[in-house]
Design a protein around this nucleic acid. Structure first.
Lengths: 248, 248
DNA sequence: GATGGTAGCATTGTTGAACAATCCGACAAG
DNA sequence: CTTGTCGGATTGTTCAACAATGCTACCATC
């Protein structure tokens, strides 16, 4: 008899558990570094010195190394033995692969939007209008994050925790790509209108049209990024090709 | 003049780079623990003691902790603050989520098999016959790994490094699920014939039929695993429900 | 008998120092 | 211009120490 209420308690208390349970320092350090990397304070290629960062953040080298491992596992950094960890610098191939994943995930999400419960699109709609408001006030940084949150919400339609985290990782990697591009503010702004279009098509239940719009969106974005890479590469042909190949 | 041959050298040497570069001990430790976990030597729920394992493997606690972080990030273990790390014990919800991911990945892979270059199905075909040979000789362990390799090869048709690694993680988690099931040998064996069917349909270019067969395959497997969980859960209701819920 | 406190022990969290191994740049020699 | 070589700087790894936390058993109280 009392059984039911106890289960009820535990279910509601469980949601607050991650609040009471403080996180380990290594996790917090990883969080800090992750945001620093994503926000561009550490440009791709930057070396993350154990001693320097450890001193600034006030943590020991051992703890810091645990955090580095996590970042490397998330592909935000790379670990070269006896040389240290560096902020990841992505190649054009990486961009292609990332958009392959996006097509897979977001495409499935749009197709699944048909049999979603009402209210599932709330987060999507909110991200769209947030982006527009930010753009109207010329807050380009906010507009960019809103753009990414739109696609995160899109992936969320699948209702899968693993896909949510996968998408988080994909978008984090993508932000690394954006930093290579000049003026990423304009880049995001150009796509805000398309976000609204996709959102409205979904609300109207027109899944095929939404899927087509999404495909065009992703194809255009990928093309733009890859061509930006091509231009940048021909501009940096000062170093010998052989040395470049060996350095990877 | 000599430029061309140098580029040639570097391209071929680059493939051997990961051979010469020894891996760090933390990575090797993580490898060992990973195989121990997925082979079932450490059953789900087992606590991984820092001192005990560190002593056996001859590594220091700090190095071991780096390895633990990796395993937690791969979802093969969970880290509870001030309590240690435990081999992950998956819930029925996890099974559902994992099969959602499998449907997404493998479904896309089968659909992409149409425009794959000839020879792309070689790995798939090899996994199928390996599994049959192993089953014929009643090597159930080998048959099980061949089954998983079949699906890994299927995902490989997408030609995406990230999806390959994602699939590796998904299958590793699933092996954790299999250990909960009694007699996982029989489980895999029953699906070997379906693997051949899917493979032959793909070789014949009949993509829609292959996709249907795959869907049935995944639905059946998921149903079987989830029902096994349900049975196990009602059998283990000796412990209070509230306590069980809070322990997560 | 059930609840609540408390002391002790084992384990984890984190740090700092230490030493070996490795990389990198500079500089000299052919 | 290439090839050794040397020294400084950084990473790889271990060890020892201490604080913080969790667990268990025991005891007291109602």
């Amino acid at each position: 008899m009392g059984e039911q209420v106890m289960v009820d308690w535990s279910a509601r208390l469980g949601s607050g558990r991650e609040f009471v349970a403080r996180t380990a320092t290594a996790d917090r350090v990883a969080d800090v570094l992750r945001t620093r990397i994503i926000e561009g304070l550490f440009p791709p290629g930057t070396r993350l010195s154990e001693e320097a960062i450890g001193q600034v953040l006030g943590v020991s080298r051992n703890t810091l190394r645990e955090a580095f491992r996590l970042l490397c596992h998330e592909r935000l950094a790379v670990h070269e033995l006896n040389r240290g960890v560096f902020v990841r610098v992505l190649s054009a191939d990486d961009v292609v692969d990332l958009y392959r994943l996006r097509r897979l995930i977001e495409g499935a999400a749009v197709r699944a939007a048909g049999q979603c419960p009402p209210g599932a699109l709330d987060a999507v709609r909110a991200a769209v209008s947030d982006g527009e408001h930010a753009a109207a006030r010329e807050l380009w940084r906010e507009a960019g994050t809103a753009d990414l949150r739109f696609h995160q919400a899109l992936a969320g339609l699948l209702g899968s925790p693993r896909i949510d985290e996968l998408m988080r990782g994909v978008l984090a990697e993508l932000r690394l790509v954006f930093h290579v591009m000049p003026s990423r503010q304009r880049f995001h702004q150009a796509y805000l209108a398309r976000n609204r279009e996709i959102c409205e098509l979904l609300e109207a239940g027109n899944v095929p049209a939404a899927e087509r719009a999404l495909t065009v969106y992703l194809d255009d974005a990928e093309r733009e990024l890859v061509s930006a890479y091509r231009e940048r590469d021909v501009g940096a042909e000062s170093m010998g090709e052989a040395g470049k190949a060996l350095s990877r």
